[in-house]
């Protein structure tokens, strides 16, 4: 299976199952498009007719291009078959090892954002803070169920985790105390709304947090539309100076600013560029996921605008990079050469299997998006996963469990998408959230185009340095 598209002056052909990416000219693009459904004579006739005014497109040129296409097909880099369905079955039998936990250290928040999937941090339940004892047991559970895996991840999440900051620090200290003797390495992430960020938080996070996620939606009026405190005041003016200080202090360490866009700001690149111009260089912006009748829900009419926005973003990022002022965007951060193996691409985020969420009371859920839904409680940090049927359901929840994905060219980039989004949109974790699929495919086209652009620019620079007079 292949996928062909043109974007920003590039003609691109993806071979879905091998992962191969080809940048081609117009003739090759058309030949590849006809290759599987036409005879050689039909292709030659069609190309000679289409390019009759082109002196460089001759019968011999077309034959040569056809030979190149056939060579790539034989090398398994074009029109390759899908050999992974069987691997997916093997992978479903994988062990029950856990490698990542989302620790809900606070089911409480000092902001009152109306679009919050977590119901202002309470997850439809009572306010609560995780005790050190529950968190310690969660870390012991993770170490005890991680098998031979060395790298373990813990996200401090909420609500607002800084409302329980002392417990966060104590849990980090405990993890550092035990990781050596168990041959483990903990990588911590902190997600915060910024209200309680101060110098002490910055210093500790820079010492211990592998990544920091800072919640900002963009322009002041966009941010303050939803991200307000309990008296209704916007939080933009309060958090921006703190986050800027935090981001600068991170240096080379990972952080990213994460916003949410809604129907009210489909021109979301304006928000990203606003953040970039403030000085934030590592950005992410997620489409809101909510009930279709919610006023902030994205609509079908928004889609063409959003597609254009993603293209604008990709082109602007390339421009800024050429000017030596690069910014990153989470969804465009793909690594074609050293990217994930096929097992990762089949299994995705690992929710419900190798990735679990822990509530302040120690209950286990498939991920943070399922917390608060009693039907998805899987066990607790003392007894482990007791609902093994649910774990098995999530083990089978991969791209090959979704018939809708069978004909999708992006299936090995998204692994079938987010189980929680599918559950909320289609009523089943093995369903699909079609609106999200459309946005995802557009983002991948843009991300791959950027990789092609950078590759060609590098090749051109190398050629010029080898032959400076050319």
């Amino acid at each position: 299976m292949i996928h062909q598209y043109k974007l920003n002056g590039y003609s691109i052909v993806l071979d879905v199952c091998s992962g191969a990416v080809h940048a081609v000219d117009d003739l090759a693009y058309d030949i590849i498009g006809m290759y599987e459904g036409s005879t050689q004579d039909e292709i030659i006739s069609a190309m000679l007719a289409k390019y009759a005014d082109r002196t460089d497109v001759t019968g011999n040129e077309i034959l040569e291009c056809l030979a190149d296409v056939e060579a790539l097909r034989e090398a398994g880099k074009l029109f390759s078959e899908d050999p992974y369905a069987g691997k997916a079955v093997d992978f479903q039998r994988k062990s029950n090892e856990v490698k990542a936990l989302c620790l809900h250290v606070a089911h409480s928040c000092n902001l009152n954002c109306s679009y919050c999937f977590a119901s202002q941090g309470k997850y439809k339940g009572e306010r609560a803070l995780m005790s050190f004892e529950v968190g310690k047991q969660a870390l012991d559970f993770l170490v005890g169920h991680s098998g031979k895996r060395v790298n373990l991840e813990v996200d401090f999440f909420g609500g607002e985790p800084l409302l329980n900051w002392n417990v966060v620090k104590d849990l980090v200290a405990y993890a550092r105390e035990i990781e050596g003797r168990h041959n483990k390495k903990f990588r911590f992430t902190l997600t915060t709304n910024g209200v309680l960020v101060d110098d002490e938080v910055i210093e500790f996070a820079n010492r211990e947090m592998h990544n920091v996620v800072m919640s900002i939606d963009g322009r002041p009026e966009v941010h303050d539309r939803f991200r307000v405190d309990y008296s209704g005041r916007g939080s933009y003016e309060q958090i921006i100076p703190k986050f800027l200080k935090f981001a600068r202090a991170r240096g080379e360490r990972d952080y990213y600013v994460r916003g949410t866009y809604t129907h009210h700001n489909v021109d979301f690149t304006e928000d990203l560029f606003h953040l970039a111009d403030l000085g934030f260089t590592r950005l992410s912006m997620e489409p809101v996921v909510c009930a279709p009748d919610d006023p902030c829900a994205l609509t079908d009419e928004d889609l063409p605008v959003l597609f254009e926005q993603y293209e604008i973003l990709a082109k602007e990022m390339l421009r800024r990079e050429r000017e030596g002022k690069p910014i990153t965007f989470y969804h465009y951060m793909i690594d074609l050469e050293h990217g994930p193996c096929i097992y990762k691409r089949i299994s995705g985020c690992g929710s419900g299997t190798e990735y679990l969420a822990v509530t302040p009371w120690g209950d286990l859920y498939p991920c943070h998006q399922f917390v608060g839904d009693d039907a998805y409680r899987m066990g607790n940090v003392w007894d482990g996963v007791t609902n093994t049927e649910m774990r098995d359901e999530f083990k089978h929840c991969n791209v090959y469990a979704r018939p809708e994905c069978a004909d999708c060219w992006a299936r090995l980039y998204c692994s079938g998408g987010c189980a929680a989004n599918a559950y909320h949109a289609a009523g089943s974790i093995t369903g699909t959230y079609e609106y999200g699929c459309k946005l995802f495919r557009k983002r991948m086209e843009c991300a791959i185009m950027m990789q092609v652009a950078k590759y060609q620019e590098t090749m051109k620079e190398n050629a010029e340095s080898m032959c400076p007079d050319v």
Partner: peptide
């Protein structure tokens, strides 16, 4: 100019043999 330029990518089929350690980030 070559009409088809293949970008360097990880071979997914080979990664079925060399991959699967589970040490990557989630």
């Amino acid at each position: 100019m070559k009409r088809i330029q293949t970008i360097e990518t990880r071979d997914l089929k080979k990664s079925a043999v060399t991959g699967g350690c589970g040490e990557c980030q989630t």
